[in-house]
């Protein structure tokens, strides 16, 4: 949280190349000089980026460059890792999420997360989706809860496939369905932002296509940040792309710009498959 001084040195040493959108959108999340340390090891070296509202932003870059680490800063999941330490400032709707008086529990209700491997709870499909609304007290009556569950499943394009077996265990679904169940579970607490860490890496191509389609639909109502190792996926689903390398944010801009006319040599090398 020591900000101003650090940013200067960082931006001068590793200037991020930034290409603004032609029609700029309002900023939802504003990260400034974010550094993350795992014990003595530094994983992120001062990352500064604006995440626009109701847009899909993709994080790409070679494995181990810090994409997941940066993503976990947005809902403070790094707090759960022993020895992890975050410096810098992240504003969500202009409020510092690392401020001492911020309630992490409320933050995580506003910033949902979908993990690499589908991780439904060993409960029924219904209970999986109802979990968040229950702990946050979002539904007062049983009917309201059912309503929330059904709309969340609908928004996650899963309802038609599971409407007859809501009481069956969520772990019995196929991988792709499980992942959409996890998305429904995140949607159920009405977040503003949804973080997705390689959500399709454990899925087959058809399931992947369904999830990508879903992401495109969700964009209308949610700010989405997706980490992906597939550049095709970034190109298909995102409007903005950020390229990370060795803990630095090298270049970010409109997705078509990054994939067609990258400015940095390293970005170009990565896009064209010369390393990674």
């Amino acid at each position: 949280m020591t900000v101003a001084a650090d940013i200067k040195t960082d931006t001068s040493a590793f200037a991020t190349i930034r290409t603004p959108d032609l029609q700029p959108r309002p900023v939802k999340v504003k990260a400034t000089g974010v550094k993350v340390f795992y014990g003595a090891k530094q994983a992120l070296h001062g990352v500064t980026i604006d995440i626009p509202d109701r847009t899909v932003t993709a994080f790409i870059g070679p494995s181990g460059c810090g994409k997941s680490t940066f993503l976990r800063c947005f809902n403070r999941m790094n707090d759960t890792i022993v020895g992890a330490r975050v410096e810098g400032e992240i504003l969500l709707d202009n409020r510092n999420i690392y401020a001492p008086d911020l309630d992490v529990v409320e933050l995580r209700a506003r910033v949902g997360m979908v993990f690499q491997k589908p991780n439904p709870f060993p409960k029924s499909i219904f209970e999986n989706v109802a979990y968040g609304p229950r702990i946050h007290g979002l539904a007062r009556t049983k009917a309201e809860l059912e309503e929330v569950v059904v709309t969340s499943l609908q928004k996650a394009s899963l309802f038609n496939e599971v409407k007859d077996r809501l009481q069956e265990p969520g772990t019995g679904l196929s991988g792709g369905q499980q992942q959409r169940l996890c998305i429904a579970r995140a949607i159920a607490v009405s977040p503003d932002v949804i973080l997705m860490d390689e959500p399709c890496s454990a899925l087959d191509p058809i399931a992947t296509a369904k999830v990508e389609e879903l992401i495109d639909e969700l964009r209308a109502n949610y700010t989405i940040v997706i980490v992906t190792h597939s550049m095709q996926q970034a190109a298909r689903v995102s409007q903005r792309t950020a390229f990370f390398h060795l803990g630095h944010l090298v270049e970010e801009g409109p997705t078509n710009m990054i994939f067609t006319k990258p400015i940095e040599q390293r970005t170009q090398d990565y896009i064209t498959g010369r390393f990674g």
């Binding site: 999941m77 759960t80 409320e106 995580r108 209700a109 993990f115 991780n119 709870f121 702990i135 946050h136």
Partner: peptide, 8 residues
């Protein structure tokens, strides 16, 4: 992690 990320 899934539970904590939902704000539990």
């Amino acid at each position: 992690d899934g539970s904590l990320a939902l704000g539990a």
